[in-house]
Design a protein around this nucleic acid. Structure first.
Lengths: 67, 67
DNA sequence: CCATAACCAGCAATATATTGCCGCTTTGCT
DNA sequence: AGCAAAGCGGCAATATATTGCTGGTTATGG
C-alpha cells in the first residue's frame, strides 16, 4: 500500500461513481489541484485529506495487524 | 477512523510489542516528536509517516468499498 | 468537425506537518 | 524513597502538502 496504489484506487472508485474530479474535490472540501496529485500518486497526502475523499467515495480505511 | 483512533491503535500496538517511542521512531525513520503527536491524535499525519510506522509495527492499512 | 467538458501540470503563495532542542512529569524498578 | 527510563509538550525552524491561477492537452457529445 503506497501513494501510487492509493491514487489508483481513488481514481477508479471515482470513475465507477461517474463523478468528475471537480465535483469530488468540491464535495470533499479538497482542492482539485491536490486531488489530481493524489490520484496520480505524485504527492504524499495528509491523512485528513485522504479521509475526506474516502468519505465521499464510500471507501473506508482500516488498520489491522498483519497475520 | 480518525486521527485520535489511529493514535490509539498505534500506541497500543507499540506497547504490545514492548518497544519505546524512541526505538519505534528511530527504526521507522520518524522523529520521536512527531510520533508523540500522532499517538496523541494531535496532528494530521502524512500518509508516508503513517505507513512507515505501520510497517515497523506489523500493521497494514487497507482501503475498501463500504458495503 | 466543432464545441465543450474534463483532465493535466508548472508556478508562487500559504498552511501545516515534521523536526530538534529543551526542560518537566510520569512510570517502573530496586 | 531514590534513581533511571520513558513519555510529554512548548517553541522556532524547516520541509512539504495544499491551494489558486493559468494555459495547455485530451476526451466526449452533437
Amino acid at each position: 500500500m503506497d501513494q501510487k496504489e492509493i491514487g489508483i484506487i481513488l481514481k477508479e472508485r471515482r470513475k465507477s461513481l461517474k463523478i468528475t474530479q471537480l465535483d469530488l474535490a468540491d464535495i470533499a472540501g479538497v482542492s482539485v489541484r491536490s486531488l489530481r496529485d493524489i490520484e496520480k500518486g505524485k504527492t504524499n497526502p495528509e491523512l485528513e485529506t485522504l479521509l475526506n475523499l474516502c468519505k465521499v467515495l464510500g471507501l473506508e480505511i482500516s488498520i489491522k495487524v498483519i497475520k
